[in-house]
Nucleic acid binder design. Structure first.
Lengths: 218, 218
DNA sequence: GGGCTGCGTTATCGTTTCGTGACCATATGA
DNA sequence: TCATATGGTCACGAAACGATAACGCAGCCC
């Protein structure tokens, strides 16, 4: 298991690294936001939100946008609730406040790894009926013709295409695309409309009344 | 998104339920360990570890063994680190200590939901006599012919089909479909009527006088 | 600055679905 | 067999739902 530790205080980071390594993790250390974003891929990030060269929250956002399945645990000295909520909303999976015990941190790391690692590695290409989605390049083809989608449209399509034929609930799509169920359904409906228009195939994106939408298979 | 709230203190649970419902979640409440294990399937469990009739930790273990993908957030008054570690190690995905703010709880719920339901679509298939119910696509076939059901009709059918041949009480169905037993019983009867009409098979949905309904098995 | 594009919100409209009350049917039990 | 309670059916108004168009705002690139 590979962990990236992002922490600018070298005394703290040194202590944490030895603790983590003693427990069998491979640990890479980054002291700045830039270093964090440049680090090698890993399974989990321990991210201090107080960084010298940039806000940790931005790092969090960047990391999350890069990979959905990366586990992120925010670590910070500020214990105020507002910070915690912001941290979680930004894409962190968990939040630990200093000072914390190594036992608890370890438990949280394992609880999170249990979730993240088990996930099937994303295949780069999703094919559903007449659509072909390249997750890497974010390119979409319909019946062989390339279609340009905006970010939201693409994310919505992927959210649907991950479970072809299944009814995907509003909440699920909102979580996948906006990371929260809070923002309006209306917005989603509007994007669905433009997605349908761009795909051009009638009945491909079907509505499931009272539930959400479904991508018609074959 | 369906949440099961396991909490024995009724003042606390009432407050939490309204808060959760206000944020758009479907909530079922269980006050005991037994009730928790008997409740309908859900996406996430808020589990008080201090229960009267059995240790919450056991409930946690049982729920986890039943489903790997179920999200479990342990909620408890004991704030000692040892408890937290035990909770997480038992299978909980997250741990919140009372008193907590609703904003933080909500943030943690969303952070966890973002992970849980996404990957393994419950592509479960229920087959009872001439009916085939696909929970993922919410499609229903009767004798091979596709039937279109409304949300309520479908939910009622699933509630019955989960225990084929067994008499399912009014209360159980109302909880499954409306998340409350608060009257509405007449409404259920009406929906049963239209469900029967759509299924078209006589005697498939049987009345159990004074109790509820039963789905006739092959 | 001025156009463009992506995005979120609001307003509006047609449709489906739901819940309710009135009335009918059937079972139950004396 | 009849009275009563329990469940079934019908019909209608209210509410929810979803599609679409239009607007405003922000960021971006000349």
């Amino acid at each position: 298991m590979r962990i990236l530790l992002v922490e600018d205080d070298h005394r703290v980071s040194a202590a944490m690294m030895t603790m983590l390594q003693r427990r069998g993790y491979e640990v890479e250390h980054a002291a700045t936001a830039a270093a964090a974003l440049a680090a090698a891929p890993c399974d989990l990030v321990l991210l201090d939100l107080n960084l010298p060269d940039g806000d940790g929250v931005d790092v969090c956002r960047s990391l999350r946008s890069r990979s959905e399945q990366l586990g992120i645990i925010a670590v910070t000295a500020r214990g105020e609730e507002r910070d915690r909520v912001v941290g979680l909303r930004t894409g962190a999976d968990d939040y630990v406040v200093k000072p914390f015990s190594m036992a608890e941190l370890h438990a949280r790391i394992e609880a999170l790894l249990r979730r993240t690692v088990r996930q099937a590695p994303q295949c780069e290409l999703i094919e559903v009926a007449p659509i072909r989605i390249n997750l890497g390049t974010r390119a979409v083809e319909v019946n062989g013709a390339c279609v340009t989608l905006t970010r939201k449209e693409f994310d919505i399509l992927v959210s649907l295409a991950r479970q072809p034929g299944a009814a995907v609930s509003y909440e699920r799509i909102l979580l996948d695309v906006w990371q929260t169920t809070w923002s309006g359904r209306h917005t989603l409906e509007v994007h669905i409309a433009s997605l349908r228009a761009k795909l051009g195939v009638p009945n491909l994106v079907q509505t499931v009344r009272g539930v959400g939408y479904r991508l018609q298979t074959g």
